[in-house]
Amino acid sequence: MAETGSIIAFLARAGWADATRAPLAGDASARSYERLSRAGQTAILMKAPPGPEIERFLRIGAWLSQAGFSTPQPLARSDEEGLLLLEDFGDALMARRLAEHPEEEPALYREITEMLLALHRHTPLEDLARLDGAGLASLLDLVPAHYPCTDPAAAAQLKTAIAKTFDTLSQEPLVMCLRDFHAENIILLDRPGLARLGLLDFQDAVQAHPAYDLVSALQDARRDVSPAVERTQIAHYAAAAGLDHDRFAAIYALLGTQRALRILGIFAKLCRVDGKPHYLAYMPRVWAYIERNLAHPTLAEIAAFLRVAYPPVTPELIKELQADAPSP
């Protein structure tokens, strides 16, 4: 991360030297954010590890913007220092709107589904990682390294079963997926149509199955989405895209299982390695998604391997992980 002197010099070059700075809540990444204010104007300062992340953020953001979606426009950059000054989309997080107006949940998630349908009509960037069966399985490598694993052999068999099942079920071309796509990463803007959804945190975009981001939005680790809304949007996506509903629902359950298991590994790592135990509070919800997805009959073999390989989330398991957190 850039040091204070580098940041001051960067802001001076960008014409924001006289701005007041206020930290914003971060995420699970190594990035941090500040809101800058001056003379009635605001901007967002993103601080990232030096390297390719700034270029990747801007390249994918430009692609999304050219396709008609709303992404924060860059104002200034310093790749070598990991600094990026961005347009400020404001504070109207969809997650906050849902908390204050739960009756709007069906309409807001319908907007999300419509946005994904529109996004998936565009040919994705070719050089993005491909989450085919092998790609999905490889993402689970971090789980036994951080989340308790009771049977490493079963964990390996689980990865093989996930890859095989996906490759058997999937018939659709891979599409552009934002990956960390949920209500905390969407800002509601005063813009028409699909541009109303301001997109954040898209630099880890991949090529994946069309159900991937739908799972990310509807099986949100941070908030409960009504099961009725989830069922409705699964059916709406499949119908609008001309896909077989039953096969799409099976792939959705498979991807939900893979994503939720990986998230458990990430949350365990955030606690045990990075000293961020507050992510453990989301684990019971994430395990509940696993149980819901494993109820799908297509996932019987996957369910058998997973239940042998990994224990369920319990208060005792969470205490174990908390005990492993490094001291502040």
Rank of each mutant, 00 (worst) to 15 (best):
H278M: 01
A118C: 10
A48I: 05
T257W: 00
P192A: 07
I251G: 06
P144N: 08
V286K: 04
L136T: 03
E53S: 13
A154R: 03
R307G: 02
P106A: 12
A205M: 05
A95W: 05
L116I: 05
L84D: 03
E291R: 10
M176H: 12
A12D: 15
L75G: 09
S70P: 07
R272M: 12
L214R: 08
P148H: 09
A145T: 10
A95D: 14
W63Q: 11
G256D: 03
F166C: 02
T150V: 03
E172Q: 13
M46K: 04
H120R: 03
H182W: 07
L214Y: 08
A253L: 03
W287G: 10
M283P: 01
A281C: 00
Y147V: 01
A48G: 03
A48F: 10
P297K: 07
A118R: 14
A107K: 12
V206T: 08
Q157E: 15
P328W: 14
V225K: 03
F267Y: 14
L84E: 03
Y212G: 01
A95N: 11
E103A: 15
M1F: 07
Q171C: 05
A281S: 13
A48L: 13
L158E: 00
D324T: 11
L84Q: 02
L264G: 05
L261R: 01
A155N: 01
A154W: 03
Q233C: 10
T168V: 06
R222C: 09
D141W: 05
P311C: 10
K269Y: 12
Q258V: 03
R231S: 14
A211C: 11
L294M: 09
P284Y: 13
T298K: 10
